[in-house]
Deep mutational scan, measured.
Amino acid sequence: SKDTIRINGIDIDVKDLHEEWKRLVEEALKRGDEELAIELLERALKE
């Protein structure tokens, strides 16, 4: 798994994120759902 995830052309540092969150965000991006990916990231970062 990578340490960054690219959303809207912005590389976001996710190395401190739990693997499960990372996977969910990557799944959302694979489906092209950037809005969901951002929402998941925000939730993950609050934890």
Rank of each mutant, 00 (worst) to 15 (best):
K15Y: 08
D33S: 04
L24D: 04
E20S: 14
L29R: 02
E39H: 10
L24Y: 05
K2I: 13
L17Q: 01
L17Y: 04
E27Q: 10
D13G: 05
E39T: 11
A28S: 03
G9I: 02
E27S: 07
L36W: 09
L45K: 13
D13S: 13
I10M: 12
R6M: 14
K2G: 15
T4K: 05
E20K: 13
I38H: 08
I10E: 10
A28C: 04
I38Y: 12
L40V: 04
A37Y: 01
L40E: 01
E35V: 14
E27A: 11
E26I: 15
I10V: 14
L45P: 04
K46M: 12
L40S: 01
E35A: 14
W21P: 03
W21Y: 11
V25E: 00
D13A: 06
K2W: 14
G32M: 05
E47V: 08
A44M: 08
I12M: 07
V25F: 05
D33F: 07
E20F: 13
D16I: 07
E26K: 15
T4A: 05
E42H: 10
L45T: 07
A37M: 03
I10L: 10
D33C: 08
I7S: 01
R43W: 10
R43C: 09
D11A: 07
R43S: 11
A37H: 00
L41S: 01
I12K: 03
E35W: 09
L17N: 01
A44C: 03
K30Y: 12
A28T: 04
A37P: 00
L41T: 04
A37L: 06
I5W: 02
L29M: 09
I10R: 09
I5D: 02
D11T: 08
L45V: 08
I38V: 10
L41I: 14
L17W: 06
A28E: 00
K46I: 11
E47Q: 12
E35I: 12
R31M: 15
I12R: 06
L17E: 00
E26Y: 15
I7N: 02
L45G: 08
E39D: 09
L36K: 10
R23F: 11
E27W: 07
L29F: 05
G32V: 01
A44D: 01
I5K: 01
E35M: 13
E35Y: 09
V25Y: 03
A28K: 00
I38K: 13
E19S: 12
L29H: 02
E19K: 10
E26F: 15
N8K: 06
R31D: 11
D3E: 11
I7P: 02
E34T: 14
V25K: 00
E35G: 13
V25T: 01
S1I: 13
N8C: 08
E47W: 05
D3A: 04
L36C: 10
D13I: 08
E42I: 07
E35C: 14
L29P: 00
K2S: 15
A44F: 14
L40H: 03
R31V: 11
K46N: 11
K22L: 15
E20G: 11
D11G: 03
S1N: 14
E19D: 13
A28F: 04
W21I: 12
E19H: 14
D11P: 06
E20R: 13
H18K: 13
H18G: 15
W21C: 08
I12A: 02
E34Y: 07
H18P: 14
I7F: 05
D33E: 09
I7R: 00
D33T: 03
K2L: 15
H18S: 15
I38N: 06
R6D: 03
I7C: 06
A28H: 03
A37C: 02
L45N: 12
A28M: 05
I5S: 01
A44S: 04
E20A: 12
L17A: 02
S1R: 08
E42K: 10
K15L: 06
D33M: 08
T4P: 07
A37T: 02
L17I: 12
N8S: 05
K46L: 15
A44E: 02
D13R: 04
